[in-house]
Write a protein that binds this DNA or RNA. Structure first.
Length: 434
RNA sequence: GGAGGGGUUCCCGAGUGGCCAAAGGGAUCAGACUGUAAAUCUGACGCGCAAGCUUCGGUGGUUCGAAUCCACCCCCCUCCA
């Protein structure tokens, strides 16, 4: 008999419980047996990003506590689009595109949950499986009848869209909450799934499912939401200058991923440790206290980056991220061997291979903007004017711009052909020129 | 189908014939200070090294000159039927 525990106390200590359908009932439900729970992930891209990490990790926490998680990929709901707290109607993507995204996200899910641990083995399901063959009239009569439009338009999640001048909501998106509710009812019926979790923005959709499960199948099910992750400075979590932080290493390298967490603000980092790692709350509190008692830079960011990167990208990904980080931020460039430099490139440091004759025309601003070190040449120009551009630690000035070849002098190359180029304090690019 | 209100640079939002590459805020980038933090201050912020080039839903037009005026079209919102 596996040890079944109620994870709610731990989740509460982590600040991960935002709303529940009733804390006592939920605690009783979870401690009295191994339960099945689910969380939905809609395919809005071909990869999950760190916005999905909290629900994903929470599923895993439940699994570790002896419950069975179902990760639902929204092959159907993704076709419709969730309007919850969205300011605008979204563009519909084609079915082919959504299908391909579903396939990729399914694979990703497989990495983060345990699918081979007996009764608690995770499941990945696609709501298209039970939605695509439902005909319109059945849906309207059997499902739609249970929903009151009066109630639906009162939902906070669509309030802005309905009340705000200049916006609106299509019937398509308005129906989303019914589809999601239907998912919960189906899962309750098929898999005896009795709990749905999700971000707090999903509350309205989730309770719709709680009601529907009762009405359609007489099943009493529960709900829990997690708070949305915020940043203390008020900017949006999960974005950097280079865009969204994806879980797919092809989109966001383990190095960039590691750097993202390493750059967490002091005021956010301890709550992030609770949200995004499996370290115990007491360990995190101890770490915080130790950091407070010491002057200077806290250790928390390093721990956070290590833990999250290892979970998502494994030991190898973490090692790669660290190799780059150590070389660029701690190391001395001229001590690096050829294999070190090659490894940096393999580890995910953005690299461009050029022939020396290609440097004869063009400008430095153009080149550095093209490889992604800045959004435009203007920004490079600005950085040049402030001595913020270096090649192998030589600072370049504005006058260097037109003399592209002179920016990469053969005698300054590392191991004959490598140039570590830096813009600002944190952005690096490796040029290999021969 | 009718009446009215809108669509401005990443976002919000000013601008109603030249002084507009377009106020202000946010986001973002760079610098100073630091710890690869935060806060603060400074600069940048359509593209271009520059000359210059391309923008204000779309297409045409009026004008020496249009984001601003006109025509048609597309999309959104509100109310009415």
């Amino acid at each position: 008999m596996i040890d079944v525990r109620d994870p709610i106390a731990d989740l509460t200590a982590r600040g991960l419980v935002f709303q529940t359908t009733g804390e006592e009932a939920l605690a009783e439900h979870l401690s009295s047996g191994s339960r099945t729970l689910y969380c939905g992930f809609d395919p809005t891209a071909d990869s999950l990003h760190i916005g999905s990490l909290v629900p994903l990790l929470t599923l895993r926490r439940f699994q570790l506590a002896g419950h069975r998680p179902i990760a639902l990929v929204g092959g159907a709901t993704g076709l419709v689009g969730d309007p919850s707290f969205k300011a605008q109607e979204r563009d519909l993507k084609s079915r082919d595109i959504i299908d391909s995204w579903v396939a990729k996200i399914r694979l990703q899910m497989g990495e983060y949950l345990d699918f081979d641990c007996g009764a608690q083995s995770a499941l990945v399901v696609n709501n298209l499986d039970w939605t695509q063959d439902v005909d319109v009239l059945s849906f309207l009569r059997d499902v739609g009848k249970h929903f009151s439009v009066n109630n639906m338009i009162q939902r906070e999640s669509v309030r802005q869209r309905i009340e705000r001048e200049g916006s609106g909501i299509s019937f398509t998106e308005f129906t989303y909450m019914i589809l999601q509710a239907y998912d919960f009812a189906e899962l309750a019926n098929r898999y005896d799934c009795t709990l749905q979790i999700g971000g707090s923005d999903q509350w309205g959709n989730i309770v719709g499912g709680v009601d529907l499960s009762r009405r359609m199948y007489g099943k009493q099910v529960q709900a829990m939401t997690m708070p949305l992750v915020t940043k203390s400075d008020g900017t949006k979590f999960g974005k950097t200058e280079s865009g969204t932080i994806w879980l797919d290493p092809g989109r966001t390298s383990p190095y960039a991923f590691y750097q993202f967490w390493l750059n967490a603000a002091d005021t956010d980092v301890y709550s992030y440790l609770k949200f995004f790692t499996f370290l115990s709350v007491t360990d995190i509190d101890d770490l915080q206290q130790a950091d407070n008692e010491r002057q200077g830079r806290p250790e928390a960011q390093g721990v956070l980056a290590e833990q999250v990167t290892r979970f998502i990208h494994g030991d190898e990904g973490l090692a790669a991220a660290r190799r780059i980080t150590d070389s660029l931020f701690q190391g001395t460039l001229d001590k690096m061997s050829e294999s070190d430099l090659q490894q940096l490139s393999l580890d995910g440091l953005p690299t461009t291979v050029l022939k020396r004759h290609e440097l004869h025309d063009g400008t430095l601003t153009q080149l550095l903007a093209d490889v992604g070190l800045a959004g435009s040449g203007k920004q490079i120009k600005d950085a040049l004017g402030r001595q913020a551009v270096t090649v192998n630690n030589m600072t370049l000035g504005l006058e260097a711009n037109k003399e592209l070849a002179a920016c990469f002098p053969a005698e300054a190359a590392l191991c004959g052909r490598y140039y570590v180029t830096r813009v600002g304090k944190k952005k690096y690019h490796l040029f290999e020129i021969d």
